[in-house]
Amino acid sequence: MTGVVLAAGLLGVLVGSFLNVVVHRVPLGLSVVRPASRCPGCGHEVRRRDNVPVLSWLLLRGRCRDCAAPISVRYPLVELTTGLLFAAVTAHVGLTWALPAYLYLVGITVPLTLIDLDVRRLPDAIVLPSYGAALVLLTVASAGTGDWGALLRAVVGGMALFFLYVVIVVVKPGGMGLGDVKLAGVLGLYLAWWGWDALAVGAFLAFLLGGFVAVPMVLFTSAGRKSKMPFGPSMLAGALLALFVAQPIAGWYLGLVGLPA
């Protein structure tokens, strides 16, 4: 299993290199395939040998080969973070039919988090196709395991989390964006397929993590209570975290109220 986890980590680093392109181009409405990456300083096309994830940045000492313009450290950090998340999810989910689905979840978590932090937006170009991708991948997972109840649970959970966010938007207009509502349905699919406990814990963690970020910003920065703060990163982090901690948290809570786990 160690070899599989290491391979997944390496794959994640490679995927992270592509996600850097996604983060830069999707908010601008540009193709993520063409043209090839260029230095924003001198306009030279990035050579293949200078496009090796992490390693090229280190060898170039974080600067363009042609004009010596600085290359943001965010590029290798995104690659490394994606690799670590791929490895962690693989170690937790295992070499199962569900693994591709949850690696895809990581694959959208990284760019959506960064884009929302950068431009306060969750692009439809990523979120909406993820409904189809999630349904296909989770259907394959259910077919492979024979657990069709998990797929039904995923659809119900996706709808439930989507409509929960719709109610929040209706009750408190401006409290969150429509992008958050659209993302909620995608996350609901993944969380509910994993289990009802994951859905409940993931939904709760989103608001808990959002509060951890919002309260200090309101108290100690110039951000006011009506300032628009990105909620997508908290939703995504809560969903991923729930995959790892939902079962022990649910067991602890049920034990606390005297119910069988």
Score class of each variant (00 low, 15 high):
Thr139Val: 12
Val201Pro: 07
Lys182Gly: 09
Val140His: 03
Thr81Asn: 10
Gln247Ala: 15
Lys172Cys: 00
Asp116Thr: 08
His24Cys: 12
Gly185Pro: 03
Gln247Asp: 15
Leu241Ala: 15
Trp252Ala: 15
Gly255Ile: 00
Val119Asp: 10
Ser17Pro: 06
Leu135Phe: 02
Ser130Cys: 07
Ile126Thr: 07
Leu205Ser: 14
Pro27Val: 14
Gly94Arg: 05
Val32Glu: 13
Pro76Tyr: 04
Ala133Val: 15
Leu105Thr: 06
Ala69Asp: 09
Leu114Ala: 11
Thr109Met: 14
Ala125Val: 01
Arg25Trp: 00
Ala125Lys: 12
Gly202His: 11
Val213Trp: 01
Ile115Trp: 05
Val110Trp: 03
Val257Arg: 10
Ala200Thr: 08
Gly177Asn: 06
Trp194Thr: 03
His92Cys: 10
Gly202Leu: 09
Ala134Ser: 14
Val89Gly: 01
Leu112Thr: 07
Ala214Thr: 15
Val201Lys: 02
Trp57Gly: 03
Leu112Ala: 09
Thr82Leu: 09
Gly157Gln: 01
Gln247Tyr: 04
Leu135Val: 12
Pro248Tyr: 10
Gly232Val: 04
Gly188Val: 05
Arg61Asn: 07
Pro76Glu: 08
Ala214Ser: 15
Met159Ser: 04
Thr221Ser: 15
Tyr102Thr: 11
Ser17Glu: 11
Arg47Val: 00
Asp50His: 05
Cys67Ile: 05
Ala198Thr: 10
Phe207His: 12
Val171His: 02
Glu79Asp: 13
Leu55Ile: 08
Val54Arg: 00
Asp66Pro: 01
Trp97Ile: 10
